[in-house]
Structures are given as C-alpha cells and as structure tokens.
C-alpha cells in the first residue's frame, strides 16, 4: 500500500527538445555554464577536454551541395532510467564509490563531486558522452569568482561532472513550497536553466509522468525519438524532428534495415 502510494507520487523529470525550433544559437550551453559554475580555460577549442554539460551538436545529412542539410541537437545528460526503468543507468551501475546515483523520487541521475575520486568508469560507460572530467583545476580570472553561485558547488580537479537537471532549483522550489505549506511544486516552479533561457522555446522541461505537464503530451508526438533507444538506456530526453534523416540519426540501424 505504502509502496503503491510512493510509486504514484514518483516523478520522472525529462525534456522534450524540438529540433525544428532549435537554431543552434548556443544559449542553452551558456545558460548552463552560468547557472552551474562551469569553469573555462584560455583554449576551449579542444572539445574533448571542454566541460559543457549541455552541448549542441551539429548534424549533417552527408549530402553534397546544394542538397546539404544541417541540424543542431542539444545534448545534456540523458538521465537514463536503465533497462526496465529500474534506475540502473549505464553510469550509476558502474560507479564504484556510489558517487553517482539514481534518484527514484525524481528520476534524476545525480553526481556527488566530493564523493567522486575520478576513476572515470562512468564516462566509459556513458554512450552519450554526457560526462565530463575536470582535467584541470578550475581557475577564474581575478575578480570573476564574484559571479559564482553558492547553489552549485565549485568542482575541483580530478572529478567527473555532468548535467544535473539543475537539481538545486528543484530543491529550492521544494523548500519554497514547503514554507508555503504546499506539498508539491508547479510545472513552472522548477525549470532548468537551459529550458528557461532558450530563445526559440525549443526546450520543454517537466515531469514526464504528470499528464498536466507539457512534456507529457509532447513526448507522444509521432516525430518524437530518443537517442540510442535500442541500447535500452531509457533516456529522459525526447527529441522532436519533422525530418526523417534526423530521427534516424538518433539510433544505429543495420544496413538492410528500413
């Protein structure tokens, strides 16, 4: 009985990103960096050692001029539910020190920076490359530490970090609701920094289990797809695209497959 009740109230936060609307402007990336105290270096052109919890990919259809098409695809951590949605996401199940965890109440995959000792097994496990390692100590030019937010701790060198769905915003919203005597929070009270900043309104964030939230209907769109669904990672990021080649780019297909 108790189980059933807690199951009913379990949330599953997720995103629907409309690729038809996304313009590749990069606001989501910077909104995320600004919200989450993401550091920067003098040279950030080596993208494989550049921390961007939200990263916008540029996809092409591979055709030559003038039939070329490009599409932008913002990619945060997919907050995988794992096989059967049991919370055994690829990264959570491998972390030896329980530094990354699947929150059954929200469906959010957390990362505890002070617990992580930097073995990077989670990075090897993540097929989305959504995890980033602090190869360097974060350094801000003198005076620039002023803008650092106390809501997200600054990560030191040698640990892994990744998108948290701005979990601190969820906590703040919950706290606020608690003080105001409410048991639950509204859809607008908890939004990620990227969804909030997106000028195109391409990112919709909410509880995938709550029929009152916009994402609930959006994810059922016939143009909706997720990345690498065949691996049974059960990601919580849905993408929408009216273009077939983009939807197909979301997963791997055998050569003879239609």
């Amino acid at each position: 009985m108790k189980e059933e009740k807690s199951d009913k109230s379990a949330k599953k936060f997720g995103m629907v990103i409309d690729l038809d609307k996304c313009t590749g402007c990069g606001s989501c990336m910077v909104a995320c960096m600004a919200e989450n105290n993401v550091p920067f270096k003098e040279d950030e052109s080596k993208k494989l050692v550049s921390i961007t919890w939200m990263r916008v990919y540029r996809l092409t259809n591979g055709k030559s001029f003038p039939d070329t098409e490009i599409c932008y695809l913002p990619k945060p951590c997919q907050h995988c539910g794992g096989k059967g949605e049991h919370g055994h996401s690829p990264c959570v199940s491998v972390c030896p020190a329980t530094a990354t965890d699947y929150n059954k109440e929200t469906g959010i995959v957390s990362q505890i920076y002070t617990r992580c000792f930097g073995c990077r097994y989670c990075m090897a496990a993540c097929p989305y490359h959504a995890r980033y390692f602090n190869w360097w100590d974060p350094v801000w030019p003198k005076g620039m530490e002023e803008y650092l937010s106390p809501n997200v701790s600054v990560r030191m060198r040698g640990v892994v970090e990744k998108c948290s769905f701005c979990f601190h915003r969820y906590q703040l919203a919950k706290d606020k609701a608690y003080y105001e005597g409410r048991s639950d929070i509204g859809e607008n009270e908890y939004q990620t920094a990227c969804a909030q900043a997106c000028p195109a309104g391409a990112i919709t964030f909410g509880d995938l289990n709550d029929s009152g939230h916009a994402v609930y209907e959006l994810k059922k769109n016939k143009n909706a797809f997720r990345l690498l669904e065949r691996l049974q990672t059960n990601p919580k990021i849905y993408y929408l695209s009216s273009r077939q080649w983009i939807r197909r780019a979301g997963d791997n297909y055998l050569k003879n497959e239609k």
């Binding site: 055994h88 199940s93 972390c95 329980t98 617990r115 000792f117 097994y121 602090n134």
Partner: peptide
Amino acid sequence: IDVGQPIRGWFIFWHANVHSMLTEVA
C-alpha cells in the same frame, strides 16, 4: 596514478557500490 583524486581512492572501499565491477576489482 590513474584516478583523478588519489587521496580519496579509499572511497572505493568505504563507499563501495557492490554493483560495480570496479569495486569487485579493487
């Protein structure tokens, strides 16, 4: 040498996640 925070390496024992192969390895 391989881990990012060697001084914290013992977390693998202290905060062991028994589902991880690496824990078993360690």
